[in-house]
Design a protein around this nucleic acid. Sequence first.
DNA 1: CTGAAAGCGCTAACAT
DNA 2: ATGTTAGCGCTTTCAG
Lengths: 340, 340
Amino acid sequence: MGRQRLDSPTLEEVAALAGVGRGTVSRVVNNAAGVRDSTRRAVQRAIAELGYVPNLAARSLAGRRADAVALVMTERHWRLFGEPFFAETVRAVSDSLADTGMQLLLTLVRTDVERRRFVEYARGGRVDGTLLMSLRADDRLPDMLGEAGLPTVLLGRRSDDERVTYVDADNVGGARDAVTHLLGGGRTKIATITGPLDMYAARCRLRGYQEALARAGAESPPSLAVEGDFTEESGRRAMTELIARHPDLDGVFAASDTTAAGALTALRAAGRRVPEDVAVIGFDDFPLAQHTDPRLTTVRQPVDDIGRALVRLLMAEIAEPAVAWQHVILRTELVLRGSA
Amino acid sequence: MGRQRLDSPTLEEVAALAGVGRGTVSRVVNNAAGVRDSTRRAVQRAIAELGYVPNLAARSLAGRRADAVALVMTERHWRLFGEPFFAETVRAVSDSLADTGMQLLLTLVRTDVERRRFVEYARGGRVDGTLLMSLRADDRLPDMLGEAGLPTVLLGRRSDDERVTYVDADNVGGARDAVTHLLGGGRTKIATITGPLDMYAARCRLRGYQEALARAGAESPPSLAVEGDFTEESGRRAMTELIARHPDLDGVFAASDTTAAGALTALRAAGRRVPEDVAVIGFDDFPLAQHTDPRLTTVRQPVDDIGRALVRLLMAEIAEPAVAWQHVILRTELVLRGSA
DNA sequence: CTGAAAGCGCTAACAT
DNA sequence: ATGTTAGCGCTTTCAG
């Protein structure tokens, strides 16, 4: 059977070799205070000599914690694996978590079987808490975990009325700022390429777009909006469609920067059938090569802050029973780069 | 404290409610044979009533196994996160593993601290085995794990002489086939865009390219090869460079399909400064939108087979001490699609 | 077929 | 400051 080397030394053997009691070794291993320096050194020497490594299962069993948290990716997200936002978020969480000494476990949950299996894994005490990314509105995973009394924090709420602790970017505000900026630049015919509208974040960005236009007294006819799915290809396709419908448009707000990159490609391909200076604004800001296009401005989400907030909230829930839920909404920032 | 709900029912409580002994409940939970049907049903009823979920730490401690395996991504790979090959491989492994009832844990290992921490995690018995993806030649992780007696399987060897069990695609052969195909089509001036040459797979593909040319008695001057890094952007850049150097080239072998897609973009941008029908062949085959270009042919790696082989070998090593190491090389397939 | 009992290796509370 | 002890919840003999 796999697992700890069968002849792996135990705490007891270390204690024997160092000539101390088990408790003392435990204290040294856990960096607890109250051990004379000379004793500590003797124990450390014994640990090194034996190549001792604590058995985590025993530690969990006795200490009632796993020292690990899971970051769950659902099927939906899996398709977006390549999105810079996704990769960056994982990195940010990983960085924040590094300080806490907890292991980060990425977990795929694509089917209902896997969903159930994960809940058993979590309820079984293998993780102290769970981070869930961009769930679909109808995903019950947070509730299953919540009922089991497991600390859970969402990245991105599922709906307006989310009754679980979450961290989210100000999607409505960010989109509004972007479109308001375009309007301020004198543009009048502004289209949008949305994300998949069964995702709350995508709907928020669409709402922000509509609000900005409404505030300016402008119209937002349905023909100016095309649904995409955050991918580059959908951006290309949607842009082509938009150009056909409205050759005179002079601004585009895309729900992601990947989509925006696709839109720019289509725009370039269209050549002079469209105005030279169509401005494009995309959500998220990462070093995509395509960003070199001077027409692209982006709405930056503070990924590091998001990662920090997620970890902070999760640790708080792990530390205390959590009688209430908390929400953290992070401000976005418009990164002007081009002529937009 | 996070972890199992404090009032979580135990095996003992289930036994009490069902009016049986602990052992019997354990047998039922683990689907072991030798329990009368009526007894089994009674236990199951008690389990349902109490909402019992086994404590995994206790199970690990007593049963000496974790029922989980880790798939480790290193920093290098992390940068390639968006690569379809990567995502597809994870999916394939996840699928194969589903049958075994083991949990798949993706783990990030970017720094040496994380490297050491992971080894402690693994040695601590939290996973039964480890799968490592596309390591750099100088990564010691497999050796650290090996010394600890932990079952380890690599996806992609680090060098010609890999002394750890691994699964790999026939990179040399695949590249050779691709280039031979181009030569067979009458092309004579064939360039290559390589992957990062500190990765063994990238070097193999370059070697295959060179071998094919050599066998045909053709030259492969250094100016026909440009180093890329598997990304689309590098493909674009490299292709631009190649066009400048050799406006008359009529074929390109790219080390990844993402790179190939970038090359095609550059080719399109170059317009008629290059021959109309430059053929491009990329490694890997996934439904990238860019593949619609008729000039692109690809070398397909059998991702599902790779996933299956990885899981099979790992399970074998977990089951037995493993006195030897095994290598599995999977054949690639040329997927003709265009004019190549 | 089933119950009882002996640990798995560690933490934490309690002595000393 | 350090040794001792009592479990944590489960699997796995070993009896019966």
